[in-house]
Nucleic acid binder design. Structure first.
Lengths: 336, 336
DNA sequence: TTGTATGCGTTATCAA
DNA sequence: TTGATAACGCATACAA
């Protein structure tokens, strides 16, 4: 006996559909008395206005889509958490899409979302630096879009990022101050905006301290555990770096495993610093020096920007870029 | 010029809406030729059948709702990952709801979902052991529901769990074999099914090895970092346990922090074992002995059960319980 | 303040 | 094989 609709509810109350409908809309004219009666009966019969019918009528879904490269990842789950909190305040629901860093999936998701399923999109882009024209179609006009963390530079839409250049610069400088002279930079996709920006910080910090930048110290890793294990061990053995700067959390972990296998001591033989959102970094052996992004807040701000667009209309000039600060936590993996 | 609808597409092709509609449905009679023409034009004009209109018509949403107590948590993000993978295979979308362990939110979400927004629900329940009658309304008849991990015993619906009793028994036994005589059990909600089952394993293992169970060794923790820190430190100081069995990942971490502050050595002064999905448990200091649940697989199986219900209709007798095995990984935190 | 009628974009039934 | 039309459940313009 569930799934009662507005017509049945109206009949049960001897009212018309429209009157009943009004009871659920805040603005409409309706006698307080009848409204109360309707709401009471609705509760009794467990009536819920059909979401699809309402949204077909209103042409909005009160739903936002989140597109991320992966889910089982501290950073993204914290960011989604941040988005979810803000979305709930606005009574919006969230759909989750995972690209697995696959550019094609990203395109498919975006294209699909043009069917009205979501009112807006919050996305951290997949790794590939291809043609992003398919996104411009949404741009300002169509489906509101906000980037966070990983962005496409050539797409003009609001974004929330962290001060990656500065953080990278400081991270590298920190290694230098701890005595490192041969610092390797571990990155997954150096051509993507985020890998690129972080790399520039690394390069400039080296230069400032008169350490020659050498291309061979840029270690291009993949998304596979096994491959990275080989790549990193090779790098450790052949280049013998005294410092490792991991642009991505999992590469710092991979370095720990590699050093363990190679019986190399961190921090004595090689110091390690990494971008990471791991809350228990202090519990690692040795505790890991991290550049930590405020992931939850990043998500929250991204959601905020999206709601500015959604609720402000075109008239409002939405902020185009929010930059949040990462924080450097010095721990034992880089001690002298 | 986006957001073209079926009528416009039909006009552009000099066809009727119905013919165009048929091109997108696999079963209908339509000339291969015209179908190809329609699909080509649809792609050109970027037409996407409106999701809300379709679903209003078909009375199904190809969407499943996932309700979890929290998001920023290894276990749940892995489980969601598992669900997502299966859902995508079936071309379903996923909505995420977070209860923050708040029973009222859980009720609200469930009630709300009766509006047709989702075809089914996968849920790990909030901590409270109250009246769950609101769920029975969905039961077999209405919105298909699958539990995973944390379940309500009194609700009759398919579920995916792990062999918690056995794992707990073995975990406790492992501590005993390593020489522990005073083992504390750290739990968040001992009355909830999962805390209860795990506790029974602990109790029975003690009994088997002729260690008297004492109530004071059951340490009831909360969801707050600060509170747990106090609770655990008090327990360590007053009870002086030589073994800690954490029923929940974060309590193992809290124990690590507490021991660090109290300058207690793990495993010499106190051994620690915990349920945990942390992939880098080997990198902790000391590496953490864990009972690890196959989180991703649990999510996948839960999704599978839901699709069995969704696609099998009432006729099919769906499996009521899937039990997956956790695995004990012995590491340094429990070495002699 | 309430009721009637129309349309949101689809799909399915029926007729051509 | 294709076209006209009704219906899905709701919200609003307009009439009462």
């Amino acid at each position: 006996m569930d799934h009662i609709n507005i017509k049945q509810l109206a009949e049960a109350l001897n009212l018309s559909k429209s009157t009943v409908s009004r009871a659920f809309r805040d603005n409409s004219d309706i006698k307080a008395d009848t409204k109360a009666r309707i709401l009471a009966k609705a509760k009794e019969l467990n009536y819920q206005p059909n979401h699809y019918a309402s949204n077909l009528r209103e042409q909005k879904s009160r739903t936002i889509a989140i597109i991320v490269p992966e889910l089982a990842n501290n950073y993204f789950s914290q960011a989604i958490h941040g988005i979810e909190r803000i979305a709930r305040l606005h009574n919006y629901h969230i759909l989750i899409y995972v690209t697995d860093d696959d550019y094609q999936k990203e395109i498919d998701f975006i294209r699909h979302l043009h069917n009205g399923r979501a009112d807006g999109i919050i996305m951290s882009v997949s790794g590939e630096a291809n043609n992003h024209n398919y996104l411009n179609r949404l741009g300002g006009k169509r489906l509101p879009l906000v980037f966070f963390d990983r962005v496409y530079e050539d797409i003009d839409t609001p974004r929330v990022v962290t001060n990656d250049y500065d953080s990278s610069f400081k991270a590298t400088e920190h290694l230098i101050e701890q005595g490192c002279k041969k610092i390797a930079y571990l990155v997954v996709n150096k051509s993507l905006s985020i890998g690129k920006t972080r790399m520039q910080g690394y390069v400039d910090a080296l230069e400032k301290h008169h350490i020659k930048f050498e291309d061979k110290y840029v270690i291009d890793c993949s998304n596979s555990y096994e491959e990275n294990d080989v790549i990193i061990k090779d790098a450790l053995k052949q280049l013998k770096p005294d410092g490792i700067f991991a642009a991505v959390e999992r590469l710092a972990f991979a370095t720990y495993y590699a050093c363990f296998d190679l019986k190399m001591n961190i921090p004595k033989e090689v110091k390690v610093i990494g971008f990471s959102s791991l809350e228990i970094a202090p519990l690692l052996n040795p505790s890991l020096t991290t550049v930590t992004q405020p992931a939850t807040e990043i998500g929250g701000q991204a959601a905020q920007l999206l709601f500015d667009m959604l609720e402000g209309g075109q008239s409002v000039n939405t902020i185009q870029e929010v930059v949040l600060k990462s924080k450097l936590f010095v721990r034992n993996s880089t001690s002298k």
